[in-house]
Design a protein around this nucleic acid. Structure first.
Length: 306
DNA sequence: CCTCACACCTGGGTGC
DNA sequence: TGCACCCAGGTGTGAG
């Protein structure tokens, strides 16, 4: 269940290892992990073999590895990147060259780094909700950097419709709050809408709502401006705290880039804690069905206020 | 245009 | 023991 903090941990782990490295070999063991790849663009392996990776960039839960200019000028395809979405259970594992494939490795990318030598990148994904792809880079609509990790004002075409995330220095607070209050939906649905604000999933949505004392089903149109602003502030706090702790995971599905588990569920106040006392008021937390999943909240602290 | 239900996936857990 | 079923949930798509 990687959300923004977990994906950022992966990005930060990959960045020093892959920047400047050349792709020497690509093996796709399960083509379902190329769900996001458009084959009319070219074969995934062929497009990136020989390319040089310029960095590691993230917006929300999307991660991409831009390819050096020299990698695409000859093919005249324009700037491109290796796009990664971890989905539910995806991992990007750095391994020594030729290391055995432990776990459901769907794609292996072998790299040659001028300083670090040979390195294997394993895309592991049990549930195959994640995917890799090669995608064209497009200019950002606002002219600002496309994501965290690069100054380039470019994003993959598949990320064009994804909103900036709340840790982005140019995240438009006022426009977000206005758009949130214009929506005719429930507040948690809005927090999970990646075209409105990106990077938040079921876990951090529940945590931020608990911290802001907002009921998950409160209509967005009924949120006062100060209350919406306070909610956004709690979203930022929750994400920043999780990031500082190295990400959150529950069943070892999520493992950081070096293979160590990012297990920090003890820091959660609401998510997954049905029946346990609310850390604020002591009353038992509740689990309620929501969008074919679950919402965890305190029925006492988190009141619908119209 | 907006909102929402649903499909896509697999492995672990549970009840019979 | 075996089997059917449920659950986890991020995203794209199509219906209304």
């Amino acid at each position: 269940m990687p959300e923004l903090p977990e994906v950022e941990v992966v990005r930060a782990g990959l960045e020093p290892a892959v920047t400047g490295a050349t792709v020497t070999s690509v093996e796709v063991f399960d083509s379902r992990s190329l769900r996001r790849h458009d084959p009319t663009y070219g074969a995934f392996a062929q497009l990136i073999t020989g390319g040089r990776i310029a960095g590691a960039v993230r917006r929300g839960k999307f991660l991409w590895l831009p390819l050096d200019d020299a990698s695409w000028t000859e093919s005249e395809t324009g700037p491109a990147a290796i796009l990664v979405h971890l989905g539910m259970s995806g991992q990007m594992l750095l391994r020594a060259a030729g290391a055995p494939l432990d776990g459901p490795v769907r794609i292996r990318v072998q790299l040659e780094h001028p300083q670090h030598g040979e390195l294997d990148l394993h895309f592991v994904d049990q549930r195959i909700f994640g995917s890799m792809a090669v995608d064209r880079l497009m200019p950002t609509a606002d002219g600002a950097a496309g994501g965290f990790g690069s100054d380039a004002a470019l994003v993959p075409s598949q990320v064009m419709h994804i909103a900036r995330d709340p840790l982005d220095p140019v995240f438009p607070d006022d426009a977000f709050i206005a758009a949130l209050r214009r929506k005719k939906t429930e507040v948690k649905r809005a927090l999970l809408d990646q075209t409105l604000i990106s990077g938040i999933g079921n876990i951090y949505a529940d945590e931020a709502l608990w911290a802001a004392r907002v009921h998950y089903a409160q209509p967005t149109a009924s949120l006062s401006r100060p209350r919406a602003r306070a909610l956004l502030a709690e979203v930022r706090l929750v994400l920043a705290q999780a990031l500082a702790e190295g990400g959150t995971s529950f069943d070892a599905q999520y493992v950081n880039v070096n293979g160590a588990s990012g297990y920090f569920s003890h820091s959660l106040n609401a998510y997954g804690r049905q029946g346990a006392p609310c850390p604020r008021c002591g009353r038992p937390l509740v689990r309620a069905p929501f969008m074919n999943r679950s919402s965890y909240y305190c029925a006492h602290c988190q009141n619908v206020r119209l």
